[in-house]
Design a protein around this nucleic acid. Structure first.
Lengths: 386, 386
DNA sequence: CTGTGGGCAACGTGCCGACAA
DNA sequence: TTGTCGGCACGTTGCCCACAG
């Protein structure tokens, strides 16, 4: 756990719990490492949050490249005070020219560390009703909770679990009934009403390295009620993220973005090496087969198979030669209606890859950043474009 | 009342109730009329909402004038679904060149119409406790509620009051106790918990023209818990409002702003005639006495007296020659710590005015909009500037 | 193994007048 | 005139097990 009460608003949340709530697919680049910031992805997240597509009369930002190389200077984990929704705040410093690679933190290690000892249960009607408590699946209780003293009649103990806001919640854990089962009784209804949980939402119990219990929630993705923001028009928001990035890029100053992993499936700040490998060292072509990771209902991952059906610009007017969702795909399984029809290169695992090994000298010197990043790619590999 | 269930999200709220909740000082310009949009005021509201002052490293928008003449094309009244906080959405169309004055709706009539028959009570601990109901001040009940049949024992009736979301709330209104008093019993606690009212918040009952009861709330201005927006950085918000206005101004296209009357005391869209009268037909100088309206705790208005101590730009670098808060003032009463030290010309009533009558020809033709609006003023009246 | 429901006790909610500020 | 309190009735909450899927 981070030290309590560190000064200011900087206090960081428990990273393990944050990542557990964010889900297995979410990984954050390492602080200090080089990343690629993709304005289109950022814009997409704003669109998802405001429930409003970007207006066609939006200004273009010709000085803002479709992919901006930055150093990730800071990451602050957040959780919404009201809803416990996880999000994070990233400070990005645009990188110009050819700075020494050794200056940056290597980005091989990602911060995504899913906890080992945890369980996640989707709440039933009985779990959330005022009539009773919470029924813990047997294996889950045995794996995560401290062992009960089974010589007590009935066996019971007090559990203390800490949430993302460092609030401790007390629960009476008891093993009773015919047949016997694990239950949380006293304290549970308080938690349900405080967090406003309803059937279908999930709770998450983690035992960390020191044996302490952590407690998180994941709400069922309810159809978002469109809520005008009361502060900014959605147009202003769209313009704001782009103008802020453009201004930072032009003045070589840092800027701040909020990344909301569960609001939209658009990871718009990705490790530089991941981007580099996918864009420069992988050749893709129409017809190529690939796999891609998705999160299951039970908070684990599975791979879906698909075929590349096209390679083209998502927005040829505003963002020509952008890598963002440049790959059109079809999915093998017929239930694919909910999966994206366009993906980015770094999201997929091609089944047959032609690796182009970089030359021994630092090849990046031949491609000064950031001006010609997109252009250099498309001129390198024109044959793969439709 | 507006017709129920009109199509789309356009359904407008009850204007009388909205204005009652907004308070007596808030008036909205008429739809179709000419207004002045002041980017600095807008920026100030964003600062108040994000609890973060505007960053000194913010970009300047040299193409965006400090006062932009617009037609107010639309006003939509809103109330936050969660908090009932009132705000509105204004669509502004920049006006270029010299369009016919007759093209616009006259802006003499403002939309601010405070209800005649209403009362507003700040809730006590007893009012909000689960132990009891709501004690209605005697005069308030007699003025606003339908008369009770005092031959009943005890006199009682069912009241139905409608809130901003068109939700009807039922209350049992009873006159009992020793000594006798008016109370709301059954139904009251439901309302308190649904709206999450606490002692110090206010409720507002209105009887409208048709005798129907309307019900609004005003929360005590709690020290806003700083809440990062989870969508946009405050820098992006600041940049967003300015960039959106600049883009609209440059492309002569409409834009949308949200005005949140209780979030900050910055009315940044004001009727053109009000601006014109204050800026062009009133001469002010240091030492001049003035009055200014403020809202009291009881939702009425009172005037405070002050003296002009200076006239200068609030932000000479980014917004030179702006009328926004160009007047430095001192207040007569010593409890003036909470009142602004800078105001705008149109907010005050100078006690001695030198009216400059406009020439018979349309003088505005000599001052093409919007480029030289600020400049023309300062060159007309250089002696009044410090 | 675990979701739901009946039974029942304990507690909180909410209506009343009595005070007093 | 109206804010808070003690008293008390009744409705809800919440713990228990039985039963069934």
């Amino acid at each position: 756990l981070p030290p309590e009460g560190s000064a200011g608003e900087r206090r960081n949340l428990n990273s393990e719990l944050w990542h557990a709530c964010a889900g297995p697919l979410v990984s954050l680049p390492a602080v200090g490492s080089r990343v690629i910031y993709l304005p289109q992805g950022h814009s997409e997240q704003v669109a998802a949050s405001t429930q409003k597509e970007v207006d066609a009369r939006m200004p273009a930002y010709p000085n803002l490249p479709s992919q901006l190389v930055c150093q990730l200077q800071d990451v602050i984990l957040h959780a919404d005070i009201e809803t416990d929704e996880v999000y994070c705040q990233m400070t990005l410093q645009p990188i110009i020219g050819q700075e020494k690679e050794s200056f940056f933190t290597p980005d091989v290690t990602s911060q995504s560390k899913q906890p080992n000892i945890y369980f996640c249960k989707t709440l039933t009607a009985s779990d959330t009703s005022t009539h009773g408590g919470f029924s813990i699946p047997r294996r889950a209780a045995e794996k995560v909770f401290p062992p009960l003293d089974f010589e007590m009649q009935p066996p019971a103990q007090l559990l203390v679990a800490r949430d993302l806001h460092d609030t401790d919640w007390n629960f009476r854990h008891i093993y009773r009934g015919q047949p016997k089962r694990h239950l949380l009784t006293t304290g549970w209804s308080m938690f349900v009403s405080a967090k406003r949980l309803i059937a279908g939402d999930s709770v998450l119990f983690i035992r960390d390295d020191k044996g302490k219990l952590l407690l998180g929630i994941r709400r069922a993705s309810r159809p978002q009620t469109f809520m005008p923001s009361s502060v900014l028009s959605s147009d202003s928001m769209h313009i704001g993220v782009l103008a802020a990035a453009a201004h930072a890029s032009n003045t070589n100053s840092r800027f701040t973005v909020f990344y909301n992993p569960r609001a939209s499936p658009s990871e718009f700040v990705i490790p530089f090496s991941k981007f580099e490998k996918a864009v420069y060292h992988t050749r893709v072509s129409v017809g190529m087969r690939f796999r891609m990771l998705f999160e299951t209902e039970e908070s684990s991952v599975r791979r879906y198979m698909g075929t590349i059906t096209g390679v083209s610009d998502l927005d040829p007017v505003r963002w020509p030669n952008s890598q963002w969702r440049s790959i059109k795909v079809g999915w093998d399984e017929s239930t694919a209606g909910e999966r994206q029809r366009r993906v980015s290169l770094w999201e997929i695992e091609p089944l047959t890859t032609f690796l182009v090994y970089p030359p021994p000298t630092n090849w990046r010197l031949k491609h000064p950043w950031p001006e010609s990043l997109g252009a250099s790619f498309s001129s390198d590999t024109p044959s793969t474009w439709m």
